[in-house]
Design a protein around this nucleic acid. Sequence first.
DNA 1: TTTTGAATGTGTAAAATGCACACTTAATAA
DNA 2: TTATTAAGTGTGCATTTTACACATTCAAAA
Lengths: 245, 245
Amino acid sequence: MKTVEDLEVKENLGMHLNYYQKEDQVLLAVDCIIFGFEKERLKILLIKRNFEPEKGKWSLIGGFLKKNEDLDQAADRVLETLTGLNDVYLEQLHTYSKIDRDPGQRTISVAYFALIDVDSHRFDGIQIDAAHWFDIKDAPDLIFDHNEMVRKAKARLRRRALTKPIGFELLPEKFTMRQLQNLYESILDKKLDKRNFINKINSLDILVKLDEKDMSVSRKGAYLYIFDKEKYEKKVQEDGFSFKI
Amino acid sequence: MKTVEDLEVKENLGMHLNYYQKEDQVLLAVDCIIFGFEKERLKILLIKRNFEPEKGKWSLIGGFLKKNEDLDQAADRVLETLTGLNDVYLEQLHTYSKIDRDPGQRTISVAYFALIDVDSHRFDGIQIDAAHWFDIKDAPDLIFDHNEMVRKAKARLRRRALTKPIGFELLPEKFTMRQLQNLYESILDKKLDKRNFINKINSLDILVKLDEKDMSVSRKGAYLYIFDKEKYEKKVQEDGFSFKI
DNA sequence: TTTTGAATGTGTAAAATGCACACTTAATAA
DNA sequence: TTATTAAGTGTGCATTTTACACATTCAAAA
């Protein structure tokens, strides 16, 4: 049996830090997959690189981790720099570390995905000129391993949306059933039955139906709803309720 | 509208690397939550630290990322150093980056979880003297944020086991239905009905029942099964089959 | 030789959930 | 007044999930 005193073991398990301290430090980046819902379509926010390598190509927005912040804060900062928004749903996705993922230099990147309600934020367009919202169905090819990041983010969003009430992060405070259904159809990339969808949502009993209608979309108008977050959280805590679509 | 030429924007988005290259490099660690199934119980492999800080306390096994490997490889290496095994199920879990998570120095840690079939690997005990298998129900308190890592790993394992056939990674090649059920009961931390469980498993149609019995556990003996991985993968590809328990 | 004990193995009925499906209503514009 | 357009609403069938109990095997003990 080996012991932790063996040199090889010590090295592999990183037990004498002096050896590693300088040598093996790396640059840690944060990249954000930013989803938005606008004009009844799921969108993704991308930026055109104006620096090498891969200048002129589209990429996710990213930045480097600084000494005085953790990764969540770095993601917040990067997102705020690009959108001006600072109260946004952000979730860590995965860490990418292939040695040659960035041909410029060795960089490890922690991917986050963000959900933004595009319609209600009058964030004067986008803070950065080179950024653009793409329909999720026809986003361009991206640099490095960013395509892979987006693929994984879409899968995660799909799963989350089915089991947590995060869809509302993408909608304005007041929304119609049809908007909610369109959102789910975009996320799941399939048509849903109107009656079954509404029955399901109503059975969850976490929305409040307002007396107000959105008249912009049809003659009849569509009732507006809001998500009752407190009620949802109370149900989770007290009844072990779990959101499932 | 800002442009990517603004200095502040450039800095936040990490667009001129020279500035960051040295200053903001960090030490990247890998920590492994190692699950095993032994004597019909779910276990976790921990190590007693014999170096500062927190010397003498229990912790996950870990190591530092080296220049010439990616994170998956680092996790493999750390795991092999500890167990001598090199063909183990490993999955990246989450990256932890709180500024003071390691009081010794700023370290970012990428957590992985591993699934090991303890019984059939005669890995001469464990390679490191200070390591020990704990029943998942009475594992000791761990250093740093390792408790949080284990909590998250348990949740991930629970979800994965319900939707992917990874449970078999924890069992010997040949196993009884009762063993499989015990495994799922440990992972889900609840009792399951014997008949319903067997019916469910059989309906998946991915196991092969052998003519052989395990006579060690009862007078009557229990039939042995093996997981037919090829059949499973074929079903997934051809019929869009998805494993669900 | 018989009895006992301990774990295996097997099926059905009721309840809950998922899924397909079509007509009426409200409001405005012509 | 009528035509138009999207909203809103309920039922029956199929599938899945859940609850539930007794007979079988074989070794060891009596």
